[in-house]
Amino acid sequence: MKATPTLLVVGRLYLALVLAFLYLPIVVMATMSFNTSQFYQLPIDWTFDWYVQLSSNQRLLAATRNSILVAMATTLIATVLGTAASIALFRYEFRFKKLFQAALFPPIAIPWLITGTAMLLFFFWSGIGRGLHAMVLGHVALALPYVIIVVSARLRGFDADLEAAARSLGATPWQVVRYVTLPYMAPGIIAGALFAFAVSFDQFVISYFLSVPGISTLPVEIYSAIRQGFTPEINAISTLVIAFSITLLVIVSRFYRFGDSR
């Protein structure tokens, strides 16, 4: 349907408005993190003070380190396990395959509050305990389905004849994987890994329930800071975190086309 020029302009204005709605609060927060005044004094008096103060906030620094550690462990484990599972789901036919595929959705679909409290209760009761290792356990469970979905999406376009061709040319099974299968999967695996990192790094709910006083991740620390009382330092660290996660996702999007297969 050919829209009239007026309708087109209205449509685009509307789109701009929605984008403004999505980005406005983030921009406001980022701007305020450079403002000397704690109370939104305008016009803005630019300063880096809050960022400087941040660099000496031991609690936030420790939490940042924890976040990165947990995210790296999660990325490594989820990518390896998820890639292996994707290959099995792609290559083999077996009974209950549909069930296995369906089993990936609970970690995504069930509200994190439920999964988080269930993990808290089970880990506490079974002796696994809470802390960074428990967070890794939980984050991997959340990241696995994403890795499998992203890697499987890549594999779906894979022509099984490529492997057959490599074998007919004399390649051993290992050579087939090394020269044909893995290079083909690489963009999917990289996207899956970045996704896993983002999921873990930005995860709040699960980490919140599995943290113990003194051992927490950045989002948990930010949450308790918000609840205890506002300081512009939170603006500063939040701005850094959101800038980081947006950068990460822009990189992911270079490897994985978002709306295509979700």
Binding site: L19, L22, V28, D202, F204, F230, I242, L249, F258
Partner: peptide, 22 residues
């Protein structure tokens, strides 16, 4: 499209927090 989708995957807690300022 990317511009619309990106915030969804970024930090939820911080996006909520940013509204307090608005």
């Amino acid at each position: 499209f990317l511009l619309v989708i990106i915030p969804f995957w970024s930090n939820a807690l911080i996006r909520i927090f940013s509204w307090t300022m608005v």
